[in-house]
Design a protein around this nucleic acid. Structure first.
Length: 360
DNA sequence: AATCCGGGGTC
DNA sequence: GACCCAGGATT
């Protein structure tokens, strides 16, 4: 055998003791989280999607609200995407919501509303990748399938002194093989969640609390005092900056908003029209909108600049407040709605920052 | 293999 | 600022 398990795991590693120590620690400290009330695969699924790249404390409120709004697979499948996005508003990575919606409709259409308990079927669903597959299979269905996320890679890299770059896609497969070799067959749910809980609470990226760690006696990095050297991770590229004008166009208490394209950043969310500053200087932006949108405008005032940092790009948004000067609000580039009606449209965080300036 | 895709907490 | 978070899809 020449796989990851024989490469990384010491021959004298006591797998069963490790499992016991990890699981009993997890059982003793685990929090009462809403998605741990039962093993309903729908609730587990939704929680795991929300928890992608998102902290537990952030997710709790969204999860409870989402479950109240869409209690079952059928409720979600029958919902409008617009309403699903509103429930996701502010959580970020909105393709998660759109993919979940697509997948749930697929469950209704193909599996009679029953979430498949076979991993070969489950992994066909949109938005369910290797991690989420393992999480659902182990937590909801008790199957010993690895659920390797950032926490698990950090924990395992330290315990087994693995120097593979965790920013590298193929490293995840190695860690999945490692977990495969040591996962508990008796309680894979507690084992997987225990690894993640350990990464979140004890085995942190900086200054890990090794003195509180239930499995420090198994940890090669700890025994060598090199726990802060692991894992190896290359730095991400710096984001580029794009400057926009946000055109806040008012007509008799109504404001023009438009739906963003179905693909790309903030897909299908709504916005005050954006004009890239590189294309039109401030003086020309209003005139450009007048021509392009077939509206007659007068500029009222300028707002405060809004800076927003995304994963791969930075927006600097400069609000320009205008008024329709002749009362004619017919345009093909969006619709005029009141501030109250705007609650029925999903807006990104940036757009909310612009919106907040309207009353001030 | 590299890039795209949010927003917030922490140090 | 830099880092990272219960990652996945696309190219």
């Amino acid at each position: 055998m020449n796989n990851a398990s024989t490469t990384y795991i010491p021959e004298n590693f006591d797998k069963h003791s490790f499992q016991q120590d990890l699981i009993s620690w997890y059982q003793s400290i685990k929090r009462d989280l809403p998605w741990r009330e039962n093993q309903d695969p729908y609730r587990i699924w939704v929680s795991e999607i929300m928890l992608q790249q998102t902290r537990v404390d952030t997710v709790i409120h969204y999860f409870n609200q989402f479950m109240e709004r869409f209690p079952t697979v059928n409720d979600l499948a029958n919902a409008d995407e617009q309403d699903v996005l509103i429930a996701w508003e502010g959580l970020g990575y909105y393709s998660r919501a759109r993919n979940l919606h697509t997948a749930v409709k697929e469950v209704v259409a193909t599996y009679d509303g029953q979430i498949p308990s076979q991993s070969s079927e489950l992994k066909k669903l949109k938005g369910i990748g290797p991690y989420t597959l393992g999480a659902i299979m182990s937590i909801a269905f008790g199957e010993p399938i690895p659920a390797v996320d950032g926490n698990v890679m950090r924990v395992m890299s330290r315990i087994f002194e693995v120097y593979d770059n965790i920013a590298d896609q193929k490293s995840k497969k190695k860690f999945e093989q490692v977990v495969e070799a040591v996962i508990s067959k008796e309680d894979p749910s507690s084992f997987n969640q225990g690894l993640m809980e350990l990464g979140a609470l004890i085995c942190s990226p900086k200054k890990p609390k090794c003195n509180e760690c239930p499995v420090s006696s198994y940890c090669t990095a700890f025994s060598k005092g090199i726990q802060e050297e692991l894992p190896v991770k290359t730095k991400a590229k710096k984001q580029r900056t794009i400057a926009y004008f946000a055109m806040v166009i008012e007509a008799d208490g109504q404001y023009l908003i438009q739906k963003r394209p179905a693909q790309g950043l903030l897909a299908n969310l709504w916005q005050f029209p954006l004009v890239e500053q590189a294309e039109f200087p401030k003086d020309e932006a209003v005139h450009y909108i007048e021509l392009e949108y077939d509206l007659n405008l007068e500029m009222v005032h300028e707002g405060k600049p809004v800076k927003h940092v995304f994963s791969h790009v930075i927006w600097e948004v400069y609000p320009i407040f205008c008024r329709v000067s002749d009362g004619d609000i017919s345009t093909d580039h969006g619709q005029f709605v009141t501030l109250e009606e705007m609650d029925q449209y999903p807006l990104s965080k940036v757009q909310h920052k612009v919106k907040q300036q309207i009353d001030s």
